[in-house]
Simulated scan of single mutants.
Amino acid sequence: MVKYYRTDDRKIHEEPTIQDGVWVQMVNPSVAEGQMVADALDMDVEDVLAALDEEESSRIELQDGYTLILVDIPSIEIRHEKESYTTIPLGILITSGEIVTVCTEDTPVLQAFLNNRVREFSTKKKLRFVYQILYRIAVLYQSDLRIIDKMRTEIEERVGDDTEEVDLIALHELESTLVYFATSLRANGVVLDRLTRYKRLEQYPEDKELLGDVIVENQQAIEMTSIYRDIINGTRELLSSVIDNRMNSIMKSLTVITLVMAIPTVISGIYGMNVNEHWVPFANTAHGFAIIIGIMVIICVIILLLLRKKRIL
């Protein structure tokens, strides 16, 4: 899908064709649509469609007549029938008169501009527009990181009798997400560092200040990712310890039961041997069976008391 937008009097509206000062928004475009935009703006179609490759790394390239900026943005995907976070590329191409954004999905980063929720937004101020996009990306990372930490907190609150192996799997998925975030944020940081030395387009003092804010927010997101990874790692170790302790408790209980049940088994096995009744105690005694059962019960009770005294039970 390809749409053209332009701002006039601080309000955005859709345009029918490409013209000067237009923002070309491409959401999961086809090869034909990519070729059409590439021909209209005299760009390489591979650069236009670069963001469609999920393996593309963040970078900035200066080409003849245009500049390509690739950054990673957070996105939601369905993993194991649950919503999880990942990162996908967002391509930004800047020409002398237009700006093009390319992404595989309709990201909330750009929806904010379409809904007029960004102050001082203008499609004609291309470099400022780019910095505003990058700022929204950093803010979205921070928002998703807070949601991830909230999910971790919910798992941590269940630590105890309600702890299950599924919680360990959930924590592992959260930790994997933070690895993706950390990698993408560091790569985005390299792009931002290069933009500080970007001289191709005119930068106003307000633009440089905004770029500084973007760098600060991106660095804050990196630090949040590192902190949350450490916390999740500690929570995962805690859950593992709880599950291990629970398993040890179960094994101890089974061992006690086996030990106690071994006494009646041994005694009944001895009395089950085919020997002369003269050598079997209580064989000819009245109520001999009840006496033997009583002896077994007394022995079992003594063993249980000893185990409790030793704090094994």
Rank of each mutant, 00 (worst) to 15 (best):
T87W: 09
P89Y: 07
I92K: 10
T95Q: 09
G97C: 03
V102G: 08
D106W: 00
P108W: 01
P108F: 07
P108N: 07
L114M: 02
R117H: 08
R119V: 14
E120C: 00
F121P: 08
K124S: 07
K126F: 04
F129E: 02
V130Y: 05
Q132S: 12
Y135K: 15
A138C: 03
A138V: 01
S143L: 01
D144C: 12
I147H: 14
D149G: 10
K150A: 15
K150Q: 15
E154W: 02
I155R: 09
E156M: 08
E156G: 03
E157C: 04
E157T: 00
E157I: 01
T163M: 01
T163N: 00
E164A: 14
E164Q: 14
E165L: 10
V166K: 15
V166T: 15
V166N: 15
L168K: 01
I169W: 01
A170E: 13
H172W: 09
E173G: 13
S176F: 02
S176K: 15
L178T: 11
Y180G: 05
S184W: 05
L185Y: 11
L185C: 12
R186L: 11
N188A: 07
G189N: 06
V190H: 11
R194I: 03
L195A: 08
T196A: 13
T196N: 11
R197M: 14
R197A: 15
Y198R: 03
R200L: 11
L201P: 05
E206H: 02
E206P: 02
K208M: 12
E209C: 02
G212L: 06
